[in-house]
């Protein structure tokens, strides 16, 4: 198991490097550059040249890349060009907000989704199943920002129960968490339901009934364990996705966070910040897949044995 984990982590290194190249190239191919945002109106070409040289933007691309990645590997993300602060401190400030939001949203969608999935599968084909899954499907078709706006309209503007925007107090978390969580709930519920129904039909379930085990125990202790393997894999993949997916929601609710930082820096062409934010999102996705694989092995003895 430990050997497997180490091997998997080592395998991430080349993927990480490839992702960093892609991010770097993408950013530098975008039209516009950060110097525009630094120059005062009426500044001459020599001032521009001086700044360009100062930030190394006149060097060949590969040199710039190597310089950047070399520092990143040592934990140094450099300084923001426009925002004039260390990138690490900008991200360090934004990340906790995104992690709280994403983590809570993941928790909500996991708990709600698995519960709905279990109930739907246990009453497969009944009106309860159809009602729950219909509701969940409807919820998943609505775009995040739309749900967000709707919730703001109802709970903040009309009822005045929650703050419209910002990040002050836990109340401000409710609507964004619900907004992101709802979309995830649908996915988790559907995967749980299908996996439960698949597991319910396997031969071992009949033997459990033959042993006189209570049906609720069979569902929760046996069937659910089998069903959770695909569910956990999908949830792990969603970790990175939820951090990235928070972008629109952070904007709608005007919350600080990695998403807001990314959009702001993108508008200012603040390369170092954009690169670092994207790299962190990509890392989250990669770590998510790693976590998924490890959890799968932890949950399934057959997979564990295959690794040996």
């Amino acid at each position: 198991m430990l050997g497997f984990a180490i091997r998997r982590i080592l395998m991430l290194v080349p993927v990480f490097l490839a992702v960093s190249v892609i991010i770097f190239l993408m950013i530098h191919m975008l039209p516009g550059d950060p110097i525009d945002n630094l120059l005062r109106i009426g500044a001459g070409p020599d001032q521009r040249a001086a700044l360009t040289e100062k930030y190394g933007l006149d060097r060949p691309l590969y040199e710039q890349y190597l310089y950047w990645i070399g520092n990143v590997v040592q934990g140094d993300f450099g300084n923001a060009i426009v925002q004039r602060r260390p990138v690490a401190s900008l991200i360090g400030q934004a990340l906790p907000y995104s992690l709280t939001l994403g983590g809570l949203a993941l928790l909500v969608s996991t708990v709600l989704g698995i519960t709905v999935g279990i109930i739907a599968a246990s009453f497969k084909g009944s009106w309860l199943d159809q009602g729950l899954m219909g509701g969940v499907l409807f919820g998943s078709m609505l775009p995040n920002f739309w749900i967000g706006l709707l919730l703001i309209l109802v709970f903040s503007v009309s009822l005045g129960w929650t703050p419209v925007s910002g990040a002050r107090g836990w109340e401000s978390l409710i609507l964004p968490v619900v907004t992101i969580g709802l979309g995830g709930t649908a996915l988790v519920a559907r995967v749980t339901r299908v996996a439960m129904i698949d597991a319910q039909g396997r031969d071992f379930v009949m033997l459990l009934h033959a042993k006189g085990v209570h049906p609720v125990v069979i569902q929760l202790r046996h069937v659910l364990r089998h069903a959770l393997i695909p569910v956990v894999t999908i949830l792990a993949l969603r970790i990175g996705w939820i951090l990235g997916g928070a972008v629109t929601v952070e904007v709608v609710f005007a919350r600080p966070g990695l998403g807001s930082l990314l959009i702001k820096s993108l508008n200012q062409h603040d390369y170092p910040v954009v690169q670092a934010s994207l790299l962190i999102l990509a890392m989250a996705v990669l770590l998510g897949t790693l976590l998924g694989d490890l959890l799968q092995a932890a949950m399934d003895p057959r997979i564990r044995d295959n690794l040996k």
Partner: peptide, 23 residues
């Protein structure tokens, strides 16, 4: 249910898939 497994035991068809693979 109280009778099953206690007084009447049932060995289901196909031992290969009759056991819970995760336990």
């Amino acid at each position: 249910r109280k009778l099953r497994g206690k007084r009447i035991a049932f060995i289901t068809q196909n031992p290969m898939s009759a056991l819970d693979a995760l336990k």
